[in-house]
Design a binder for these strands. Structure first.
Length: 595
RNA sequence: GUACCUGUAGCUCAGCUGGAUAGAGCGUCUGGCUACGGACCAGAAGGUCAGGAGUUCGAAUCUCUUCAGGUACGCCA
């Protein structure tokens, strides 16, 4: 927030105490005190190294005679002030361009940022966990871009490896040459079915092994993988794939294409887009030459067993193998390679990975290796780790069938939103109904995921997710639609000429509150961007929508007592509409003019 | 075992760079449509901020510790 009185108070205190760059804190006044704004002199006192209470008295004295201050109360170390309506509105909302300008970073602070997210495997359809990743990735990119950064979104699809061979093998054996067309099924779901089918067969064979050999009963399933016939067959297929076997490659391309087509639809529904998609099949061999070069320079060393290793100073990181004794790559080798590739392709000042918090250690190690290799940009790599999504029944487990499928969830929410919309709009055309149901359901889902801090483990309650009341996306959409409706009517009823504006007429508590909330928008954007936290912006939009709803109930706009008041309230409402619209779009949610 | 994360109202979450009497939504209970869209508004009840100790004028917030839950610690990805 920026007020003239803050500037004047800062100038006064700075000359009084001979300091520079004083920051005058102003926050919303708690309802139990009179006034709209509070200045905490604890914060001021720390900057000036003075006694908070004495400072409060001094601040009070200065502001009491300030033209913008209507009344004021000093309570302990707090100065609670009530602003003259004209001054409050002038500083908060009258100048829309100033508000907009404050939302962008100084040019010097803007960066080129590369953000990687989604990174799906091509062996199964996306589930709720991917949905959270996609939402966080898209919203983070959008928030960063909104404050002025140059953002590049990239995907890295894991399209090769043993997992896709499992699906391929099961398809070869049990697929009967079916296809998405013959079964009328989305390609990613079809491939996922064969992944499950493989797992069934594998477990059956492991069970048989254990039946026949008591010594195997204690062994972990993973250890027995290569002892099963089907496990060996999958491994063999992977080798053939790496050797470029034509038949295997053809099948791989066919099934991957099915998955890509399926993903395309899912992404489209969510509005997920990338500037570029990297394919692991094209990048998995990267990194080895960098390791060899690092070996020359003594960054890595060859252990007695032949593996190339790095030891870290930090005991928490321990040591890490970067190349197997047989000379092949490990996961981190590839990641080193793709990080360099991305750096070369886009020259970002910062790289961000949106990846679940279970991979925290992996990224600590990755970053430490890149620093050890001497890349100066390695200081500016960020793992944006987010929490897992749990269900009331616990963790999602694909083997136990408790995974919430993304497409099915979208369908369910869309149907419920459609029902709710139809109830309220009996005359709606089917096309329009469907369009609104799509928007409302996606807004509800995205907002639910984005309103909680990304770091927290999220509990997804299916029952709660289908509600459209309270702290939800639809609540904010509703506030927006009501304003849009009001502005439409005002336009229709427009008399010959528009009345003048007089901001000083907006003197009620709810009007002042709403205007103050509008002025807080840039700060919410900046905080969300700086902390990579969509929940800051989501919480702000909820507060704004609540303040608007309260104002809307209390102050009649279209039927205001006089044309000037009406016009000024319309203008305030328009400002709220712009901010809600802009804020929702920044969260990748599209507002609706009617709902 | 070691490291990291989490523990706030019945439930889901804010608040965590120390500052006023710890907030919101859901759920429960009261009220409110002859004013612009009731997917709304106004209000009530509901808390030992997991327990303990410390630092401080002041702690949900910082430190230590105990307990509870989660995750990671591969020549898997």
């Amino acid at each position: 927030m920026y007020f003239n009185f803050q500037r004047d108070l800062a100038a006064f205190l700075q000359s009084e105490y001979g300091v520079q760059g004083l920051d005058i804190p102003a926050e919303l006044c708690p309802p139990e005190f009179s006034g709209e704004l509070s200045i905490s002199c604890f914060v001021l006192a720390r900057q000036l190294k003075r006694n908070p209470m004495q400072l409060a008295a001094q601040v009070g004295e200065f502001l009491r005679s300030h033209a913008d201050i209507l009344s004021l109360e000093v309570v302990k170390a707090f100065v609670n002030i009530s602003l003259a309506p004209g001054a409050l509105m002038r500083d908060c909302v009258a100048d829309a361009a100033a508000l907009q300008a404050r939302s962008r970073l100084e040019p010097a602070e803007r960066q080129r940022i590369l953000i990687e997210f989604s990174a799906p495997n091509t062996n199964k359809p996306q589930h709720l966990g991917h949905v959270r990743n996609n939402c966080i990735g898209m919203a983070s990119a959008s928030i960063l871009a909104r404050v002025g950064h140059d953002v590049v979104r990239v995907n890295l699809v894991n399209d090769r490896g043993i997992h896709i061979c499992k699906s391929m093998l099961a398809y070869q054996r049990f697929g009967d040459d079916c296809s998405p067309e013959t079964l009328g099924k989305k390609g990613d779901h079809l491939v996922g079915d064969f992944y499950v089918r493989f797992d069934q067969e594998l477990r059956k064979q492991i069970e048989e092994l254990r039946q026949n050999d008591e010594s195997l009963r204690e062994k972990d399933s993973d250890e027995l993988f290569l002892q099963t016939e089907i496990g060996r067959a999958a491994q063999e297929m992977l080798l053939k794939w790496e050797q470029g076997d034509e038949e295997v490659r053809a099948l791989w391309e066919k099934m991957n294409q099915w998955v890509f087509d399926g993903f395309e639809q899912t992404y489209k529904r969510m509005g997920v887009e990338f500037e570029h998609t990297y394919l692991e099949s094209q990048t998995y061999m990267l990194g080895r030459d960098i390791i060899m070069e690092g070996l020359q320079r003594g960054v890595f060393y060859q252990r007695q067993d032949g593996a190339l290793v790095i030891d870290f100073d930090d005991p928490r990181l321990g040591s890490k193998v970067v190349l197997r004794s047989d000379g092949t790559s490990v996961y981190i080798t590839q990641d080193i390679g793709t990080t360099l590739l991305k750096q070369n392709d886009y020259q970002p000042e910062q790289q961000i990975w949106v990846v679940g918090d279970e991979q925290k250690y992996h990224f600590q190690v990755l970053f430490a290796i890149l620093k050890a290799l001497g890349y100066e940009w390695a200081e500016r790599l960020t793992h944006m780790s987010y929490g897992m999504v749990n269900l009331p029944s616990g963790r999602m487990k694909s083997r136990e069938g408790t995974v919430v499928d993304a497409d099915e969830l979208f369908d369910l929410l869309e149907q419920l939103a459609g029902e709710a919309t139809a109830e309220r709009n009996q005359q709606l055309e089917p096309d329009e109904l469907q369009r609104r149901a799509q928007s409302i359901s996606m807004a509800a889902l995205k907002f639910m995921l984005l309103k909680v801090n990304p770091k927290t483990t999220l509990l997804f309650d299916p029952q709660a997710s289908i509600k459209f009341e309270g702290d939800t996306g639809p609540y904010i959409l509703y506030a927006y639609a009501r304003i849009a409706s009001m502005l439409r009517r005002a336009k229709e009823e427009l008399k010959e000429e528009q009345a003048a504006l007089d901001w000083s007429l907006l003197d009620s508590a709810s009007e002042k509150r709403l205007a103050l909330r509008c002025a807080m928008y840039p700060a919410a954007l900046h905080k969300a961007a700086a902390e990579l936290d969509s929940s800051v912006l989501a919480a702000y939009l909820l507060d704004l929508a609540k303040d608007f709803s309260s104002f809307y109930k209390q102050c009649s706009v279209l039927n205001a007592e006089n044309p000037t008041l009406r016009q000024t309230r319309l203008e305030l409402s328009e400002r709220v509409r712009e901010i809600i619209g802009d804020g929702l779009r920044t969260l990748t949610i599209e507002p609706l003019e009617s709902m």
